[in-house]
Amino acid sequence: MEHLAENFWNIRGDFKIAKVLNIGTHMSLVRRPNGKFVLLDSYDLDADDQRELMALTDDGNQIEAVLNVHPFHTVHCKSIKEMLPHARLIGTRRHHSEAAHLDWDTDLIEDEATQQQFSDTFDFSIPDGVDFIPEDESIHVSSIIVRHRESGIIHVDDTLMFLDVPALLEKFGPGPRLRFHPNLAGGLEKRAGAADDYIRWAKQLGQDWADTKIICAAHKGIMRLTDQTFSDIIDKALEHSMQTLDEHREKYG
């Protein structure tokens, strides 16, 4: 559990593909201006992290809500609800269908009205031009990106991925360390203009959140910006994905 700003903590976790490749996952704890706490995403904490979380939040009693911001991150919702039965469990419409047995709050986090309830603490952004909940459940391109307004820290799941590789390896695989999801081609809506909508959204995100200095990415770590702006690294990530975007434009217009 890493204390990144006065009112922001990030907890790193494990998530293994085929029980072998650990691509990581995370959950963030944020203290709101009213003194209450909110969790971003769900994770089944180990004993040390749970002890620290409970110590910060009066045995969890000060945690008022859990915002699950990626429709396909559902594995740990049950354990979080069991740990915090009093907290509002807020998710996407897919959370409601995939884990209907849980006591979900009726509000959906993808809805602007729900996001407005937390606007004193967070900014939210959902990518344009991609399916938020695609029929092909192997495509996890879209999610709700959250920015803590006070600290400027971004919490993001699959939409943006951080390649935390040693400097030596970067020489053999050059490219931006922050990248859009590798299955962007599958996630783009099958219509004319989707690629341009995605580019427009990404560039606007970079400009609006340009002063961001820390990005907490589920896959696979915490990125600290020193000599470049968030706008710069978004532009580089777009350049890396431009072939995909161009091919989509050629096919659909």
Rank of each mutant, 00 (worst) to 15 (best):
Ile199Ser: 02
Val165Pro: 01
Asp105Phe: 05
Leu168Ile: 15
Thr121Val: 14
His86Cys: 01
Arg94Trp: 15
Ile145Arg: 02
Gly129Arg: 01
Asp123Arg: 02
Arg147Lys: 13
Thr159Ala: 11
Asp123Leu: 03
Ala192Ile: 06
Ile126Ser: 12
Val156Ser: 12
Glu150Arg: 00
Phe118Tyr: 12
Asp123Lys: 00
Leu163Asn: 08
Gly186Gln: 06
Asp107Ser: 14
Ile126Leu: 14
Asp131Thr: 12
Trp209His: 15
Leu188His: 14
Arg191Phe: 04
Pro176Asn: 07
His86Trp: 04
Asp128Tyr: 07
Phe122Glu: 05
Arg179Trp: 08
Leu108Arg: 07
Ile144Glu: 01
Ala195Tyr: 04
Met161Ile: 13
Gln116Thr: 03
Phe122Lys: 00
Ser125Thr: 09
Val165Ala: 10
Lys171Asn: 15
Gly91Asn: 03
Val156Pro: 05
Arg147Gln: 13
Phe180Val: 06
Phe124Cys: 04
Phe180Ala: 06
Glu137Thr: 08
Thr114Trp: 07
Glu189Gly: 06
Ile144Gly: 05
Phe124His: 00
Gln117Asp: 00
His95Tyr: 08
Phe162Ser: 03
Ser97Val: 12
Leu188Lys: 09
Ser151Gly: 08
Trp104Lys: 01
Ala195Glu: 06
Phe132Lys: 03
Phe162Cys: 05
Thr114Pro: 06
Asp128Lys: 14
Asp197Leu: 02
Thr114Tyr: 09
Ile154Met: 14
Arg177Asp: 07
Phe172Gln: 05
Glu98Tyr: 05
Glu137Met: 10
Arg88Thr: 07
Leu168Cys: 08
Asp164Thr: 11
Gln115Arg: 03
His96Thr: 01
Asp196His: 07
Glu170Met: 15
His148Asp: 13
Asp158Pro: 06
Phe122Asn: 06
Ala113Asn: 00
Phe124Lys: 00
His140Asp: 02
Val146Ile: 10
Ala192Lys: 06
Gln207His: 08
Leu184Ile: 11
Asp197Asn: 00
Arg88Trp: 10
Leu160Trp: 15
Pro127Lys: 07
Glu189Val: 10
Leu169Asn: 09
Val130Arg: 00
